[in-house]
């Protein structure tokens, strides 16, 4: 079988890990895929660069905030050097670029498997309530606010406690009006307007990972519950669950949006009610959990992108445990030196 060269971003396996390493491990463990992995990093200190049993070569990319032209020409340089066939972006800040440049990349022979611009917009925090209403999914009430006045009104309407969220990053739970004002100020200072105030719904938090095929179907779904999260809010221990309602919601979401690509749904389950809290348009950092229980979504996505057959079984066991742990590598400075001086590991 032909070797496929796959570029993967988000190889920052740190205390707030990117999903890259989980994706790569899934690809490498797939027996009928022959892949070479190119790690795409934004900093010479990203641990993935040094994990040579998973990442074959690494390159530094300019930040997605540079111009599109620079970002693309760097990818083309890498394509020239190592013949990348496909890129799997895994970080939120990169998604708009990869979505916008899909055709351009394709024309250079670099495949991606990402949602359309429209799908991407539907799930933005400011739009989620409207979208959910349209497709018949419950979501907590939310208000977009840009002033203290509007914040106060929103709190009166939603009732305390509320979640105060930035448009892209950060989410805080506020129990008092004063607290909410504090979080509002903090978010505005760091991320600007608008701020989203969301009703807090109580229940069990559960997450679903999946890949949509772009035609209303999926390449597999796995639902989990986080048992232990770190102070940064990241999963450390989790367990698989099987909840019919949760799958129903995920399937509705895919069917109605014709979602293409990876996604993670964050949900709150309260007896018979399920609320959709957030949609992440990419694999989550715990993606290897799904692979570990037999649903290897990254490999299915790659196979789908290249028109290969894949095992699309949906069966996994509930009650499988996920435990994250840390590990140490000792190496010398030479690779670090290459990455800092040349921007690549070759």
């Amino acid at each position: 079988m032909k070797k496929l060269c796959i570029g993967v971003t988000g190889i920052n396996a740190v205390d707030n890990p990117g999903p890259g390493i989980g994706v790569i491990r899934s690809l490498k463990e797939c027996k009928d895929l022959n892949v070479e992995i190119v790690g795409l990093a934004y900093d010479a200190m990203e641990p993935g660069i040094y994990m040579d049993w998973l990442v074959d070569k690494s390159f530094i990319l300019p930040y997605p905030s540079t111009s599109e032209e620079e970002y693309i020409s760097r990818l083309l340089y890498i394509k020239d050097r190592v013949c990348i066939d496909m890129i799997i972006p895994t970080l939120d800040a990169e998604m708009p670029f990869f979505i916008k440049s899909k055709e351009k990349l394709e024309s250079y022979g670099i495949k991606t498997f990402t949602p359309s611009q429209e799908q991407f917009n539907l799930r933005s925090k400011a739009k989620l309530e409207e979208t959910s209403l349209k497709i018949g999914i419950k979501t907590p009430k939310s208000k977009t606010v840009t002033s203290y006045d509007e914040l106060t009104k929103a709190i009166e309407e939603l009732g305390l406690p509320v979640m105060v969220k930035g448009a892209f990053y950060k989410a805080y739970r506020a129990y008092t009006h004063q607290e909410a004002v504090g979080f509002f100020r903090k978010i505005v200072a760091e991320w600007g307007y608008p701020v989203i105030v969301q009703q807090v719904v109580s229940g069990e938090e559960m997450n679903v990972v999946g890949v949509g095929d772009g035609k209303g179907g999926d390449l597999g779904l796995v639902a989990i519950k986080k048992l232990w999260i770190t102070s940064l809010g990241k999963i450390w221990t989790g367990v698989t669950v099987k909840n019919g309602k949760l799958f129903e919601l995920a399937k509705t979401f895919i069917e109605k949006t014709l979602w293409k690509g990876a996604f993670e749904l964050e949900c709150i389950v309260d007896h018979n009610d399920i609320y959709l809290i957030e949609v992440n348009p990419r694999f989550p950092a715990w993606i290897y959990f799904a692979t570990g229980v037999g649903i290897n979504l990254p490999s299915r996505m790659v196979k789908k992108a290249f028109g290969m057959d894949f095992d699309n079984s949906t069966e996994y066991e509930a009650g499988k445990l996920y435990v994250r742990y840390t590990y140490d590598i000792v190496t010398d400075l030479s690779l670090f030196q290459k990455i800092t001086m040349k921007g690549e590991s070759l």
Partner: peptide, 15 residues
């Protein structure tokens, strides 16, 4: 000086 978080040869503006 190389500093974590800024060890990107390209950063913003390769060209």
């Amino acid at each position: 000086k190389l500093q974590t978080g800024f060890m990107n040869k390209f950063g913003t503006g390769v060209f």
